[in-house]
Amino acid sequence: MGKAGRFACIFVPMGLTIASLLCLLLVFLGGLSKSNALGSLYFMQLDASNFTANPDLSAVDFTDIDDQFLDMFKSSFAKGDLKDFYNIYIWNYCDGTADDKSGDKTIDHCSSRQAAYWFNVKEVWGMDGAALADHFPKALDDGLKVYEKVAKFMFACYTVAFWVTVAEIVVGILAIFSRWGSLCTTIVSTAAGIFVTAAAITSTALFATFTGIVNTSLKPYHIHASMSTKMLAIVWLAVAFNVGAGFFWLISTCCCSGKSDPKHKKTTFAQRTPYTYEPLHDHHHAGGAVPLGQMGPGGAYKGGNNAYEPFRSHA
C-alpha cells in the first residue's frame, strides 16, 4: 500500500489523539479570564445569590444550626465577602454577581492561578479564624480536608495526562513510517489513557462528593452547589477520544506496513552484450530449429545426456 496508505491508516488515531488533547486543554483554560467562554468551563459552582440570614429550620435538624456559624455568614455578607456565586476550576476560582431579574451571572474577579488548587471556603468567606473553627459544620470541615488532599492528586493526573498526550502525538509521527512506530505510539497511548481516565474519575467523584456535602451542610442558608455538565462532557470526551485512539494505534501495528507493493516494483533486465551466445530452447521449435538431441554426427549431437546444445550467435 505504500507510505500513502500508511498515512491514511494512522490518520484516525492521530485525529482522535489531537481531539483528546484539545479537551484537556479546555480543562486547563477554565478560569483563565473573566470571559463567558472560559468562565463557563468550571467543575463546580456555589450559588449564594439566595443566601438568607434566617435559615430554614424545616430543612434540617435544629441541632445543625449553629448560631455562631450563622453570625459568621452574616458578617461575611455584611463585609461583601459573600458573593452571589463561585466557579471552581482546576487552577483557581472566580466569583461574581447575579442579576436579580434575569438571573444572568457576571464574573467580577478571578483568583490567581496555582498548581494543585483547592477551594477553601473558610478562607474565601473569611471564616478561617481559630476561634471560629469549632463552629464550622463538621461534615463540611471534613469534606474540605478530603477535598484538599484529593485535589492534589487530581491536578497531577491532569498534568501528566496532558503531557503524555502531547508525547503521543509526537511519537505518532513515527508511526507513519513503520509498524514499530505504531507499537511505540500504542504504548504511550496506553499510558495517556490511564492518566486521562484516572483524572476524569477523580474529578467526577471529588466534585460529586463535595457538591453533596455543601448542599447538605449549607442548604438551610439557601446556598446551593452544582456540577458543570459541560465540564463533565469535556472530561469524559477526552477519555473516549484517548481510548479510541489507543485502539486504532493498536490496529495500525498489524495493518498497512508502509512498504511498497512488490507488484509495482520495476523489473530490471540484464543488457545483452553484442557477439554473445545464448542457448537454443524448445520454443525455437516452431521456427524450424532442430529439436535438441536429434542431430546426427558431423555437426550436431545425437541426444541423451551427452548431447551438447548448439548456440545461436547474436551479432
Rank of each mutant, 00 (worst) to 15 (best):
21 L>E: 05
163 W>L: 14
13 P>M: 00
196 V>H: 01
31 G>N: 06
48 A>Q: 00
307 A>N: 10
253 T>Y: 05
160 V>K: 03
260 S>Q: 14
87 N>Q: 04
179 R>K: 10
239 V>R: 01
199 A>T: 07
54 N>S: 15
222 H>G: 00
264 H>P: 00
229 T>C: 12
300 A>P: 07
147 Y>A: 09
38 L>A: 11
149 K>T: 11
53 A>L: 09
148 E>H: 13
308 Y>E: 15
113 R>W: 13
164 V>S: 12
107 I>V: 13
35 S>M: 06
233 A>W: 10
269 F>P: 05
23 C>R: 07
54 N>D: 15
85 F>M: 05
151 A>V: 02
142 D>Y: 01
81 D>M: 10
84 D>S: 00
200 A>G: 06
80 G>Y: 03
174 L>D: 05
244 G>W: 07
193 G>M: 09
12 V>G: 09
205 A>W: 00
263 K>A: 13
22 L>I: 15
29 L>N: 08
46 L>D: 08
60 V>A: 06
315 A>K: 10
20 S>L: 08
47 D>W: 03
275 Y>Q: 14
36 N>D: 15
106 T>V: 04
39 G>H: 06
314 H>K: 05
259 K>L: 12
245 A>W: 07
296 G>K: 11
114 Q>R: 09
11 F>A: 15
98 A>S: 12
69 F>T: 03
275 Y>G: 08
73 F>S: 04
306 N>Q: 11
232 L>Q: 09
250 L>Q: 10
210 F>P: 08
167 A>N: 02
213 I>A: 06
313 S>C: 15
229 T>R: 15
217 S>W: 02
277 Y>I: 06
295 M>K: 12
151 A>L: 01
165 T>L: 03
2 G>L: 00
235 V>Q: 14
98 A>M: 10
182 S>F: 04
313 S>D: 09
